[in-house]
Design a protein around this nucleic acid. Sequence first.
DNA 1: CGTTCAGTTTGGCCTAGACCAATTTCAGAG
DNA 2: CTCTGAAATTGGTCTAGGCCAAACTGAACG
Lengths: 237, 237
Amino acid sequence: MTSQSHPAPKYYVLKEQLRALAAEGEPGTLLPTERALAAGYGTSRTTVRQAIAELVAEGVLDRIQGHGTFVAHNRPTYVRQLTSFSEDAAAQGLRSSSRLIGISTVPAEGEAAQRLQVEPGTALTRVERIRLINEEPLAHEAALLPGELPELAGALDRTGSLYSALQESYGVRITDAEDTVQTQLAGPDEVRLLGLEMGFPLLVIHRLGLAGEQPAEWTCSVFRGDRFRFQARRHRD
Amino acid sequence: MTSQSHPAPKYYVLKEQLRALAAEGEPGTLLPTERALAAGYGTSRTTVRQAIAELVAEGVLDRIQGHGTFVAHNRPTYVRQLTSFSEDAAAQGLRSSSRLIGISTVPAEGEAAQRLQVEPGTALTRVERIRLINEEPLAHEAALLPGELPELAGALDRTGSLYSALQESYGVRITDAEDTVQTQLAGPDEVRLLGLEMGFPLLVIHRLGLAGEQPAEWTCSVFRGDRFRFQARRHRD
DNA sequence: CGTTCAGTTTGGCCTAGACCAATTTCAGAG
DNA sequence: CTCTGAAATTGGTCTAGGCCAAACTGAACG
């Protein structure tokens, strides 16, 4: 008999009960308050909060300070399939938009310089944006492009797409991209920019965009882990 | 003045201090005990534990009940690039191995039936394994293959690779694969199988393997989020 | 010298409650 | 009826401490 059957932690049992409770209600339905749940389930508020925190991280629940905890609305899950955010969203019938935080010129350094194959100190254009799906923040994205690109702001404003703007204004066409996906936990920056909780699980994608053989884009995107899937297709020789 | 400068939570300040502390020590160096840290930093053990928990989730620290909390050893980060675990690991110079949990025959149902394009109830072969890098558990994997495959166990034992076994015994060659990556939190199963903590961030990959146009494999892999990166390369037309 | 077993240490889980901040509620003023 | 402002409500953060389980320590024993 190898099964030692450690009893599941109390918070986890409660978590699954709350998950079931959430499944019954319509999106938006308010759950009892944390204090009420603690009293009702004969536990402490700390334990209730741990259970709720994980369900929030899974996109099952949502909560607002001063308001309450409620069944999360069925968020569309954004799936990255192609290379462009706007194209991916359109392919899935989602309304995508961007909020431009800023375009600046920065010197190349560290990994960016290496990836873009330029000398450290070379001027790069940095485009920082928030990506939204159905008007809700989904990701923070910072793209680094070689050279100074004075016309980029206007073209980006017209087309809304970085790739379109690059092609339109500078004839740069990204033909290949290499993406690396990994997990990360939300810190103060992500909390501020994406409006989520500290320690929330995120997916970070580093992308190297190539125009032919020439590195033309080095981007770091930080997605909410609960509304995002990354999809890739490969062929073996 | 839009900056509202919410002060960072106390646990987060402590987390970054502990991160710096960990960076100084060699891997394996024991940190002070939670009770000592709480006393030293003039905080509560609860707060210390929250800080440590996130650093554990990031792979910076490691802890063992009854022993202590210490600087994590520099784990190699496994990067998925091709379609096969064994090939990927070999390409990175990592010692990979598998622990077979079981091979069974199960009826097709739900998403698996749909993905493999078989009628619900059709017999599938289920191969469940733990994937290890340098003898440490990295992922749990459950592969579903259409049909009953009596010779699979032997071939798998000989080659160690599912893809090789499939080709060798049945002439099935997986030529294309579609991977979907998303986040998940560790539950009791993952805790038991991979030896990590409840609520630990994971990366889940669903893979549909195709032999030509024919669906031949539907696999769900659950990786530790701290020792895994997923890499994909795309070409745009 | 090795083994055993009780006591100590350390992390794992949980409780009870304090104080803060954002939101909502609602009575009172205009 | 609308606006204002205080009070109540609800989630956000943190404290202090209890009990358990796993690991370690060391003395007693064979």
